[in-house]
Amino acid sequence: MNTVSMNAASQSQKTVLAGGCFWGMERYLQGVDGVLSTKVGYAQSNKPNPSYEEVCSGETDAAEAVEVEFDPDRVTLRTLVLLFLDVIDPFAVNQQGNDVGRQYRSGLFWSEGQEGEQEPVFRQALHELEKREGRSPAVEVEALRNFYPAEGYHQDYLNKNPGGYCHISIAKIHNVANRQRYIERIWQLSREQYEVTQHAATEMPFNNAYDNTFEAGIYVDVVSGKPLFLSTDKFDSGCGWPAFSKTISPDVVTEHSDHTIPGRPRTEIRTADTQIHLGHVFDDGPAERGGLRYCMNSASLRFVPKSAMVEEGYGEYLSALD
Rank of each mutant, 00 (worst) to 15 (best):
S10I: 15
S12W: 06
K14Y: 12
T15E: 03
V16T: 03
L17F: 12
A18V: 03
A18L: 07
G19C: 05
C21Y: 06
W23L: 11
G24S: 06
M25S: 10
M25F: 11
R27A: 15
Y28F: 12
Y28V: 14
L29C: 09
G31E: 05
V32G: 04
D33A: 13
G34W: 08
V35R: 11
L36S: 14
G41Y: 04
G41V: 08
G41W: 01
G41I: 06
G41D: 04
A43F: 01
Q44G: 00
Q44I: 09
P48W: 00
P48Q: 04
P48I: 02
N49Y: 09
S51V: 10
E53C: 10
E54V: 11
V55E: 03
C56G: 00
G58L: 03
T60L: 06
T60Q: 07
D61Q: 15
D61M: 13
A62Q: 10
A63V: 15
A63R: 15
A65N: 08
A65K: 04
V66L: 03
E67P: 07
V68G: 06
E69M: 15
F70N: 11
P72C: 04
V75P: 02
L77H: 02
R78W: 09
T79I: 10
L80C: 11
L82M: 14
L82A: 12
L85F: 02
L85P: 03
L85Y: 01
V87L: 08
I88L: 00
D89P: 10
D89R: 06
P90H: 00
V93F: 10
V93G: 02
G97M: 06
G97T: 14
N98W: 09
D99V: 07
V100G: 10
V100F: 14
G101M: 01
R102V: 13
Y104I: 04
S106H: 08
L108R: 04
L108D: 10
F109V: 04
F109I: 01
W110Y: 15
S111P: 07
Q114F: 09
E115M: 09
G116P: 08
E117F: 09
Q118A: 08
P120R: 04
V121S: 07
Q124Y: 10
L126F: 01
E128G: 14
L129K: 02
E133G: 03
P137F: 02
A138F: 00
V141Y: 00
L144S: 12
L144Y: 01
L144W: 01
L144F: 00
R145F: 09
Y148C: 05
P149L: 00
A150C: 05
G152N: 13
H154C: 12
H154A: 08
Q155V: 01
D156I: 11
D156P: 09
D156W: 01
